[in-house]
Design a protein around this nucleic acid. Structure first.
Lengths: 353, 353
DNA sequence: TTGAAAGCGGTACCAG
DNA sequence: CTGGTACCGCTTTCAA
């Protein structure tokens, strides 16, 4: 395959000038170019398989139709990749291309990633994180339309719109599911305070209990961590050597990995799930929650929806030519909250008699 | 912040012409531009914070210093993201930018992703997959320097260089680890035939047994799948209701998730790991193998190294200007195999007396 | 209705 | 050693 056809090639073949080609192919032919020439141009373009060179377009128009996505570790970690998936769907469907740069949690790479992207003239920027967290927004993001997915502008006066999951109601609905099954003693392995998601989910959990008239016991809430071993040890503390009467009948976990640890502990202790103990996860992590034995009831994070919502918002801004950062408080709409979704599988059941 | 400085701005400030600026800043000043002008130019450039516009550069040079990475589902799945991490490290260190497009396993998006990237004039392409697999190479990849990571050109006459893990020796060394601990009856949950990795690991396993003079029992090898439930049910079949004498003393798994299932089954059955049963994983999946209880002994996939090797190879080609695809057999070097790495943790131990 | 020409930001060639 | 100029591919203005 030889060099790609240029507008000049098309013009020659159609016997017109480059300007005519440009006009016609951009829909501004009528009233400027003779109908007949228009046909010849379109035909020639088709024959030559012509598409304009995006680089020349970028240089000329000062717009690239590229959206830069900076992630803390979405690409390299096993989590939350679907935020990017959802974002990319929307971008592609609107004729944009996304380019992803992952800083692998090295905060010093944030600024340089943004600068690189800006240098390449991206039309907009999106920052995505694994797990809800506050973000020190790189300065450069304020120079083009930008949006935050799964993170929140960590500044006294937030400047960027963010799209996040509704963690409070996620925690609330998880607890409600368990309450609905008759459980009254529900422990909560709540992750770690280092993530803002943990306290929010705890708040939801407490709200639900309170609303149901069930007393909240602080000693039933553990901030242990996010991994399998934390779930295992937390569960052992809760269950090992404890008489059935004193033991919680259900354990809510702040993610599915904790729940795996709890299931494992239950197996070690000979406790049947969900007959003797109900266990809930959170996240609906692919190929964990659904393939666990028993399959985990969990609260699904709306990852694709979050990505899609964030990208939609961003592109609206880009296409409306709002080059300036949306001043805070402009219309109060600095936050989009996407609801989580309860997924009932087999690890939860009615409270034991 | 206003418009970025251009070469013209620098030229004006230094009192020279644009051409002089270009020469000096590209190191071709000596012998062409007076020493003194050179200093003024460099100074002016520094003051104005000048960097050349990459888009203009691309248009002019017909080279973008962008490498396109197409992935089947590396971004959106929890696996193998570190291949991209390793590749990106190398690219960045050599002044290239990578742009990743994930087709989310939709093969029909392959070609269009490649075309989009080509259209944007990437200097090279890399295709990355989750798990070793044959790849129907999109036509477009043959038009620029390209390389395959974790996949193999699925054509009668392979055309593209690929970088893959050495699965045979991975399987062999896994088995050798167990053999070394005294195990003689080692079962293997080998994934599924749909992946070429499975038979390769099986071959390594058989090689090791044969070399140690241990008879291979086909009924000890299960092709069950890749997920937790497959591991669980496979293990139950192997262990449940079987007398200690007839039971394997170790189970090798083709990935860490299977191993999680096996650990779970062992817990259900009251078998202590590794005292009564040794369990090995494969992959060294982050935050699974290392946080499992007990932590999994496993065979680590050299993901970062693979990404780095593939990118190094690709950039060498790009920079040597080898625009044509490297004809097969050119120097026999169409394959790079990277060794896996044994990681010993707590799920394996000496064979029970 | 058409085509010539300028300009986006560079690089590289070539007279002077 | 220097500055002018053409060109990369496209859009857009403007004169004919």
């Amino acid at each position: 395959m030889q060099r790609k056809a240029t507008a000049l090639d098309v013009a020659k073949r159609a016997g017109v000038s480059r300007s005519a080609v440009s006009l016609v192919l951009n829909g501004r032919g009528d009233g400027n170019v003779a109908k007949e020439s228009q046909d010849r141009i379109r035909q020639a373009a088709a024959e030559l398989n012509y598409t304009p060179n995006p680089i020349a377009l970028s240089l000329r128009n000062q717009r690239t139709r590229v959206i830069g996505i900076v992630s803390d570790e979405v690409v390299t970690s096993p989590f939350d990749g679907n935020i990017i998936g959802g974002a990319d769907d929307v971008a592609r469907s609107r004729g944009f291309v996304t380019v992803v740069m992952d800083t692998e949690l090295d905060a010093s790479r944030d600024a340089s990633a943004v600068e690189t992207l800006l240098d390449r003239q991206v039309d907009g920027l999106m920052y995505v994180t694994v797990g809800l967290k506050p973000l020190d927004v790189p300065q450069g993001m304020l120079r083009v339309p930008s949006v935050l997915a799964n993170c929140i502008d960590n500044a006294p006066e937030p400047r960027l719109h963010h799209v996040i999951p509704d963690e409070v109601s996620g925690g609330r609905e998880s607890a409600q599911h368990l309450l609905g099954l008759g459980h009254r003693d529900i422990a909560f392995l709540a992750g770690a305070e280092t993530s803002p998601a943990a306290p929010l989910r705890v708040r939801g959990y407490k709200d639900a209990l309170a609303a149901a008239g069930v007393p909240v016991r602080e000693d039933r809430i553990f901030m242990a961590g996010w991994d399998i071993d934390a779930g295992f040890h937390g569960a052992m503390r809760l269950l090992d050597g404890v008489s059935p009467a004193e033991r919680p009948t259900a354990v809510m976990c702040a993610n599915d990995r904790l729940a795996v640890g709890v299931v494992l502990a239950a197996a070690r202790l000979g406790l049947s799930v969900p007959r003797e103990l109900s266990i809930m996860g959170y996240d609906d992590e692919g190929r964990i929650a659904d393939t666990m034995v028993p399959a985990l009831t969990t609260m699904a994070l709306p990852l694709r929806e979050m990505g899609a919502a964030a990208m939609t918002r961003l592109l609206d801004q880009v296409e409306n030519g709002r080059i300036e950062n949306p001043a805070a408080g402009q219309n109060g709409g600095l936050e989009t909250m996407v609801p989580c979704r309860l997924v009932v599988r087999e690890s939860t059941g009615p409270v034991p008699a």
